[in-house]
Write a protein that binds this DNA or RNA. Structure first.
Lengths: 110, 110
DNA sequence: GTCCCTCATCGCAATTCCACGATGGACGTC
DNA sequence: GACGTCCATCGTGGAATTGCGATGAGGGAC
């Protein structure tokens, strides 16, 4: 069940740096909002643990409907924390390490 | 304007440690939600910078109504990131270092 | 006492979030 | 081709956020 195809270990371009004050606040707020729900934290953790994950795996692990999980994945993707690549009939999601690092840096800078 | 009375530098009890997996997720989600808005990030940063701050100072710094800022402060307080103490007619807010440390640790542990 | 200043709280409207079932597109398998 | 699996999206309710002005409690100054 732990499929780890060549979908995920990508060379992310760069962990971009925060710009000025207000923009850093806004960026941190957006990233924080992305993980401001227990289900999304759980998803992120699962994706980190096994490097990449099929949606069906997440549906098995979490007590939520498939559509709900898909929605949470969308939010994580829009925040840039996660990437999804179509792998035949399935979709493989994986974390975007650069964005996660940026989040950690922004929080550490508080 | 930078008032720093004896209100704030308190000896916070302890930075409590996360418990099991699901509870850590929930706690991280709650803290993340507290900073999931640019205004709250800005407030937190201001409180860190000058150690403690009167509400009026925040109203001067931020482009928001007094009632809105008071509301954001309430959310930060409920998350435990901030503490408010009445100082005569005013109220002095300051960060709760233990909770901030916990947030940093939880994010770093992703 | 009477003002005035500071701030928390109370509606209220507009928006967004959260969860779900249902639908449908894309892709293998046969 | 027909069928089944996997998943994204739509539509819909209910709840929570976000912003504001208005109100009022609490304390100093006089």
């Amino acid at each position: 069940m732990n499929r780890n195809p060549a979908c995920c270990p990508p060379a992310e371009p760069t962990p971009p740096v925060p710009a000025d004050e207000a923009e850093a606040d806004a960026h941190l707020a957006r990233l924080a909002k992305a993980i401001a729900h227990p289900a999304r934290v759980a998803i992120l953790r699962l994706l980190v643990r096994r490097e990449g994950c099929i949606v069906g795996d997440l549906v098995d692990e979490l007590p939520l409907a498939q559509s709900t999980i898909s929605q949470h994945l969308k939010q994580l993707k829009e925040a840039g924390l996660v990437r999804g690549e179509v792998d035949g009939p399935r979709t493989c999601y994986c974390v975007e390490p650069g964005t996660v690092s940026l989040l950690k840096a922004l929080v550490a800078g508080l």
